[in-house]
Amino acid sequence: MNTNYLKNILSLIFLISLFACQTQVNSTEQYICPMKCEDHKTYDHPGTCPVCKMDLVKVSSLEAPILDEDGISEESIFNLQSEWKTQDNESIHLTDLKGKVLVVVMIYTSCEAACPRLVADMRNIYSKVDDPNVDYVLVSIDPEKDTPEKLKTYAQEEHLEGDQWILLQGKLDDVREFSNVLSMKYKKISPIDFSHTNIISVFDKQGVLQHQQEGLGVSNDKLVQKVKALSEE
């Protein structure tokens, strides 16, 4: 028993020194040649394929979509950890929106030029799609001014009413991160105004980006079609 115990301790120290700051030791992962040179032969350790010399990859990484332990695809916006406030002052994470098709736009409520048109387009899409399994999400790029109360008022003014309309306020940093996921650009150009790109994005029920409509006054037919198809999946 003693020797075993000692062995364990020694190997633990050895492991620690090997992996230094590593916080995760995953021994169950199998590795395989990405070209499948040896068919389905797998290895316990990373290395190179003896046939084509390519780096072995994890077996799991070859299957698409790649899901982590929570069943979230690695392309999903549900990977974002950020916390948001809704117009009803509820705290939510993006994963809370899982299971519904999402139509997303980034706006700010004091915007007078492009945003009213974007919001009108959102309403138009909403009535064309006419499906309770789709949520409509408006994320403010001006979280300093767009408080939950402000968003609530805005939703009323713009007739964005019902459970399917979700208006979000986030932290400055998280809003910037979210815009990067959408490849959306914006810049504060004066104390009240922003310049920004006009993009309406569609995410499937797993939070993976499936379609983007860019520009103002563009036909939303394609987008509507896509939303309907995704909702039926």
Binding site: A113, R176, K185, I189, S195, H196, T197
Partner: peptide, 20 residues
């Protein structure tokens, strides 16, 4: 940079009335 995507170029910004 933290807000590199504040550079609105490449013709994506076709909103009316935006000179940038």
């Amino acid at each position: 940079t933290s807000d590199f995507n504040s550079v609105l170029i490449s013709g994506e910004s076709r909103q009316d009335g935006e000179a940038d």
